[in-house]
């Protein structure tokens, strides 16, 4: 079972360099931050100095985007080693990755692509998660992907996502925006995820904003992280927290980044949702 005790059961923010100064002096109770370790895979310099300063002060979550666990090949050794060095040096409260792929034959797509939905793929992903956990010497969380393409078998995506975590001993990072994005783009309702994902396996929740984009006269909802969290996603959060109790909830923002204060308002909304839920409803 994943240790849920290390990230606060409250709301945090993704940490962007634009906000270093403001975030560092943030005194909001229960605050925590998340970073992408790839952005700190450098030999030294100001980036790592900032990370050290944040790790000294706040609980931190390292949310990887580059291991390509859903790909056909085993996790890249060099990438794993760089990740391990960061984790060993900074001892983050949580480490997570994606149920997705991003690399093939020496090209990195800077994206989180949906894996095939079949038994062979499930077996591979389980093996990749296990190898990663073994190498890092700790349990990780895996995050559910967004869908734009109805890849074969996509209807079963929630099931194999949960199954991969169960079999590998990983926890779940449940992204509620991604399930809203899936529902907008393919025939997979967000309720079908909520029905399948066991609340007690969820050790972190993500919220983000998405943006519609027209592609060949069709509007596709893009998981762009460039806007405020939508009302639908807030509603899904209330439903999920109402059923399972408070979780570490993160507001992600990667683009069109507003001032830190504006993100704090969203962060406080998430914190409020959890504070009004009776504490006895927890799965932990």
């Amino acid at each position: 079972m994943v240790d849920l005790s290390k990230l606060p059961l409250g709301a945090g923010l993704s940490l962007k360099p634009e906000h270093y100064d403001d975030a560092m002096v943030c005194s909001t109770d229960g605050m925590w931050f998340e970073i992408h370790p790839e952005n700190y895979m450098v030999a030294g310099g100001p980036r790592l100095a900032w990370l050290q300063a944040f790790c000294n002060k706040f609980p931190m979550s390292f949310h990887g985007v580059g291991l390509s666990l859903g790909g056909p090949d085993r996790p890249d050794k060099e990438h794993l080693e760089q990740l391990k060095q960061l984790i060993d040096r900074f001892s983050p409260a949580m480490v997570s990755e994606h149920f997705a792929w991003s690399k093939l034959d020496n090209i990195y797509f800077a994206d989180l692509l949906p894996p095939p939905v079949n038994d062979a793929s499930l077996n591979r992903i389980v093996a990749h998660i296990e190898e990663t956990q073994e190498y890092l010497g700790r349990t990780i969380l895996i995050e559910n992907p967004s869908l734009y393409l109805p890849v074969p078998g996509f209807e079963e995506l929630p099931q194999i996502y949960v199954e991969a975590a169960k079999r590998s001993g990983a926890g779940l990072l449940f992204d509620l925006n991604n399930i809203a994005v899936c529902a907008a783009n393919v025939d997979l309702s967000y309720q079908s995820w909520l029905d399948v994902v066991p609340g007690e396996m969820v050790a972190e929740v993500h919220l983000a904003g998405a943006s519609p984009r027209e592609i060949k006269q069709e509007v596709v909802l893009i998981d762009s992280h460039d806007a405020a969290v939508s009302e639908l996603v807030w509603q899904i959060l209330e439903q999920f927290i109402g059923e399972h109790g408070p979780k570490p909830v993160l507001i992600e923002r990667d683009d069109n980044i507003p001032g830190f204060e504006e993100l704090l308002i969203e962060r406080d909304r998430a914190a409020n949702i959890m504070s009004i839920i009776p504490q006895e409803i927890t799965d932990v």
Binding site: E38, G66, H79
Partner: peptide
């Protein structure tokens, strides 16, 4: 020269 590794810093 497409990126070969997942760390765009490199």
């Amino acid at each position: 020269f497409p990126p070969k590794v997942a760390t765009l810093t490199q």
